[in-house]
Structures are given as structure tokens and as C-alpha cells.
Design a protein around this nucleic acid. Sequence first.
DNA 1: CTGAAAGCGCTAACAG
DNA 2: CTGTTAGCGCTTTCAG
Lengths: 350, 350
Amino acid sequence: MKQKPTLKIIAKELDVSVSTVSKALRDSKEISEDTKQKVRAFAKLYNYKPNNIALSLKNRKTKTLGVIIPEIVHHFFTTVISGIENYANQRGYNVIVGLSDESFDREVLNLEMLANGSIDGFIISLAKETLQKKDYHHLIETIDQGIPIVMFDRVLDEISCDKVVVDDVETSGKAVQKLIDSGAKNIAIITTEDYVSVGRLRTEGYQQTLVKNGITPSENLILRIDDQFNSDDLLGHLENQMDQFIKTKQIDAIFAVNELYAITAMKAARHLGFRIPEDLQVIGFTDGVLSKHAYPPLTTVSQHGKEMGKQAAELLIDRLEKETDQQDDHYRTVIVKTDIIERETTQAVD
Amino acid sequence: MKQKPTLKIIAKELDVSVSTVSKALRDSKEISEDTKQKVRAFAKLYNYKPNNIALSLKNRKTKTLGVIIPEIVHHFFTTVISGIENYANQRGYNVIVGLSDESFDREVLNLEMLANGSIDGFIISLAKETLQKKDYHHLIETIDQGIPIVMFDRVLDEISCDKVVVDDVETSGKAVQKLIDSGAKNIAIITTEDYVSVGRLRTEGYQQTLVKNGITPSENLILRIDDQFNSDDLLGHLENQMDQFIKTKQIDAIFAVNELYAITAMKAARHLGFRIPEDLQVIGFTDGVLSKHAYPPLTTVSQHGKEMGKQAAELLIDRLEKETDQQDDHYRTVIVKTDIIERETTQAVD
DNA sequence: CTGAAAGCGCTAACAG
DNA sequence: CTGTTAGCGCTTTCAG
């Protein structure tokens, strides 16, 4: 087992001082070419690499980003992470991941663990429980300590910080418009409880677009799923609710606020004898593996998770590397555009 | 912006020495109850938390694990990570994620970045390119430096370290046996090139099981996919190959070595007019979202990724926390059991 | 019971 | 051109 070389060891070996070695390796002009040569050769030979921890302590920055998400077994978050990682790596940052599991306590814990020097800043998408409790003290405190936060997807108006979002209202408007243009008359929405901001906004976009097209939105056609406490048989539970819903309403199109809802609705509808898209058109939100491989392949609006991740990382790193210390203001929120990916669950527009 | 308190600050504020504060907070018996009280109160008030980086430097351990995987947008890896995270957190460790993107260079880079003090040990699943090049110097070097590695899924016999795997031969045997028991006569396998060890082993299990049942394996019924350089239109490319394959052979069952292959094969077969499972049974490896929501829902063998992650983390942390320094031997490889999850692409056994 | 000092690995200001 | 010193935040002897 080879001991990792340190400056000290190299210094002793070469019979010079530690600072000489340090300077030589950083190519300081204070050092003679001769010694530089010598030091560099030795360093290469022993494969010297500076110790990150020591550097972090010295520089008071770790060059690592903390990413906290509710769930990693989830296509969207996964694409966001890969966007973050990629960009962060390019700029010399590492990524450390914390999972909240949708739990407030675990979110707080993760934040605290990492805030004690392990990371320079956070990228976070909030847990459902946090959204519900409306307890944001942990976020406020970390920002207060000078650790910047970038929120994405599930963001908060109440907290001022950089944000990356999709224009949920507009996007779901797009989706609903597509449905209308394809001939749908009775469009239902399957969404989340309103405390999930994205769910609320998407519902809003749905309603606005109906109005804009001269259709009166009906509470009747809104199915709000509360899936939080049903993780054991979530799927069966979902399918049941949807079955009931689809059976009892007179609908010819469904806009589902996420992929799972869309797929499950399709499944329920198929069991009820609906042909898709002839009898019932379906459009989902968030493009993932499921949509692409569903039967039939699902038309969705794509959130471009990778791009969101990249943007979030960029906002964060830019802020971290900004000189000025009085940067409490000028927070930016970038809106990532969305696209409708037409597959086979919607009708062509004539 | 509140300044994070340090021992120094508390010490000055309370007019005692830094070491007194440190000891008081760690409840040393060298300190009087009185001062302890005082210090603790102050610390709580200002929400003092020791700086992780300083601790890391001092203790020469970071309490964080480096996890390097080829791909994060991938259900299996995602479940593994969540298994690692969960267990690691319980034992007070953080997880830092590196993505190799199946590239050798990025794998090496990630390893090197993290090996310089950022982490205490690695959990890794190798990139395809690494497997192909058979260049393992980076692994050997990091182990040599005393940084333990746990490999999972894509592991190497050539490297001695802890490992977590599924018994690929046995498991794919199970799958094939299931197919035989369900009446299949001509069973094809869709697998990867042999340099991917799991692919090779699964092929082996397939062949052995055929032989055991008195069937002579035929190279003819093996489709080896090389998907490495086709990421642009991977899907179309895959489907084409499978279409050709299914069309020209006389088969009534397919064992696919991963989820995507299984789904795509099903799609191709459906287009060719096969009914599933009546005309063609299909069974996949790796249980993911795709399988569950496929049409029809796919019978698969589940790899229990979460369990694998947990086991890997446990092996690693146990090794890290072992006292003894002469631990070059006694590497363990734990084999996580697999299960067949019967859904609707296989026939019931009479 | 408390504090001064050394050291983890590194950098940088300042002497020499 | 090279070395000494101090310090990042913390723990831990070792004196007092």
C-alpha cells in the first residue's frame, strides 16, 4: 500500500521547504527553473495530487454542489442530475446527492449535514411534505449563512433565490390547446393536490386555456390525486380512482399532470374499452422512458430535465464564482422551454 | 448574512480557550459542569455545527462514499443508488456521485478527482469501455493507495476487492427454465457482446439450462447486440436488428438480457403479428418501470437493486471502519438473490 | 479544571 | 530565489 505523497514528503525527499515545493508546482515565478524541474519530475514520479480536503479548508470552498431531490428512482430527476453533473464537472465541480424521500425531516437533515462545510451551494427540488407544511426555515437559514440555493421544478415564491422552472401554466395550456385542436370537446385533467405547486399551476393553465377557447371549466372534470400515503399499493389505488373517474364522466380527452398518471389512466381506459386515441386522447407531462415505450406511445410535453439541470448548475456556479459579496438581490429565474412530443395517443390536427 | 460560528468565535465570546470549548462540546470529563453548561447554551443559541471539512482533514476520513456508475438515467442504477444512500445515511455517511457515461476516460477522471481526499471509499460499476479495453490501472492504483473499492453488477474477476453481484448464470438459468416449463421449445436469447461480463454470464446460463433440458443450444438463436456506438437512433437500430432476427428464426420464446431489449423485442414481434404470450413468450432481466408498465406487463427477473446498493454500502463501510490495517485479504463477494416476477408475457405452468 | 501547542495538507505574505 | 510563519477549523496531548 503506497502512501499518498504530500508536499511535506516531497519537500523532505528533495531537501527543500514545503512552500518551495508548493510554489514550484503552481509554477510560481519566484522559483528557479531548476528546482521547478526537479520538483515537477519528482511529483510526477510519485503521482502527487493535492489533497482536496486541505484545499477546501484553506480556500473555504469545496468545489462541490449539493443536490437534494425527493426521489432518485424517477426519470425526470435523473435527467436533471445528469444535466447538473455534466455541466458541473466541466467547471471542475463535484456533485453530492441527498435524497429527501419526500420527507421534510430528511430534507432538513440532508441540508444540515451538507451545509457544514461539505458543499458550496445547493440545488434543490422540495419534498412534498415541505410544500405541505410550508415550513421553510431550513432554506432561509442556509441562505442566511451565505450558502446559495437554486431551486428547480418544485419551487417557492416565498423564498428569494435563483430558480429554474418550466412555465407550467403556459405549457399545460399548450397541451390542452393541442387536445382542443385535435377535436376534443370534454377534456379532463388528472392532477395533484393543490399544495404541489406544479400541480396547481398546471391545473390553472388547463382552466385558462379552456376559457380562452370558450369552454367553461368544470370542477367535475378535475381529478385530484393524493398519492402521498399510498405507497404500498399506489398503482392499484391510482388505477381504481381513475377507473371510477373515467367511467362516470363523459370525456374524450385527458391531460395528465405526470407520466405515471397518464399511463395509468390509459391502462384504466383500455380496460373500460376505450380505444386510444380514437375514443380518448391522452397527453402527459414530463417525457420519460415510460411515455416512449408505452402502448400506445404517449404524446407528452417534454420538460427537458437535462437542460434544467444544466441551467441550475450554471446559475449556482456563476453565483458562487461572482466576486461581489453583496449579492442578496438580483436573483434570476430561468424558464426552460417545453415541447410537445407527438406520439400516438393524440389525433393529428386537420 | 449570519457568519457561521466557529470554535474560535465561541471561545472569544465566552472568554475561554478554543480547546476548552471543543472539549466542553464533546462532553469531556476534563471540563467542569459549569463551563460545559455555558458553552453548550451558547453553541445552541448560535446553532454551532462543527465544520466537516476541518474534521475530515483532522481525522483523515471524510465520511463520504464515492459512487461511480456508467449512467444515471437508468432504473437499475437508480435503485442501487437509493439503496446506497439510505444505508449510508443511516451510518452517517454522505454519497457523492460520479457518472462515467460508459467512457473509460471519464471513469478514470472521476476516480482521480474523488480519490484525492474527497471520499473514503468507492462503490463502482464499470463503464463498458473499461470492460472492453481491459485497462484497470486506475482501479489497481486506488486500491493500492489504501482506498477500498466495492464493485457491483459489472465486476471483474481480475481485481480483488469486495463485490456485490447477482448470480447471473443461475438467474438466467431460472428464467430459461421458466420458459421451458411454460412450454417453449425454441428459445432465443437477446444479449450483449461478450465483453460485458453480465451479458456473457447470462448467455452462459441460458446455454447451460438448455443443455440440462436436453436441448442443443444453437448459435443461431443468439442475438448479440452491440449498442455502443448507436446512441443517436439507438431505438430504431435495436428494433431493426430484432425485427430481422425474429422474422428469420423459428422461435416461440425470447429471453432478453435487459429490460430495453425485452421491450423492444416485444414491440418488433407485435409489429410482425405475434401475439404475446400465445405465440411468443418474453422474459426480461432487471425489473424496472418499463417492465411493469409495458404492454403487456413484462415478466422479468428482478435484480433487487436497492438490496445490492445496501449490501455494497455495508461492505464498504464495514471495511472502512475496521480497525486492522492489514486487510488486503478476506475480500467478500455477496450474491444477491433474484426473483422471477411473473406478469403477462409468459404462460402459466400447467 | 483550563490553556498552550502541535498538527492534519496546503497556500501566501513576508523575510532573508 | 528560498524559507519561515501564520492560518483555514478542529482535536488532542501535555503542561500548568
